[in-house]
Amino acid sequence: MEMIPYTVEAREDTGMNNAKLGIWLFLASEVMLFGGLFSAYVFLRLGAPAWPEGGSILSVPIATFNTLILIGSSVTMVFSWTALKENDFGKYRLYLGVTILLALLFLAVKSFEYSEKFSHHLYPSSSTFMAIYFTLTGLHALHILGGIIVNGYFWGPGSKMWTSDPERFTNRIEIAGLYWHFVDLVWIFLFPVLYLL
């Protein structure tokens, strides 16, 4: 069976391996997806006769807590990658496990926030602000869920590759880390836009 080329070594023409090129192309499409929604937010807000201050409807302390969680998870994600670079598989599993737990905590807090809104009869249909709030944060939460599934696989069954091809496995974790950082960066934009402005 022929091996897939350039999974670890960089291609001469692109200057990077195929996995990294692939994830950056994917992230570029994600930028367009979230960029389109951010543009929709801007135009809806500019066209609205009145727009509520996010903090008057949403809970700023809860969102601040969730921001801290995601900043912390990006740190542990990078630590899991550097642990593999230092050939420390035990530390890798520890840090990636903490990353997954922090992501689950983020979703738990988000679902609490959603249920609080529903209990006050605030739904996507309630106002334009609530519609864009649920759309943006819901899509972001789906991306968090996707990250949990991928990281969960690399923490569990996918980690077998460490014994057979450690260099390629380390590369996979870097790719997963790039995705995770992108999802965290989206939240860094969402937080001030929806909650503070």
Partner: peptide, 22 residues
């Protein structure tokens, strides 16, 4: 851009948001 470079960029963005929120 590698993960290390993206991480440095992300932390820089986090510093800005922390100070702006403050």
């Amino acid at each position: 851009m590698s993960l290390s470079q993206f991480h440095l960029f992300f932390i820089a963005a986090s510093i800005v948001i922390c100070l702006a929120f403050g």
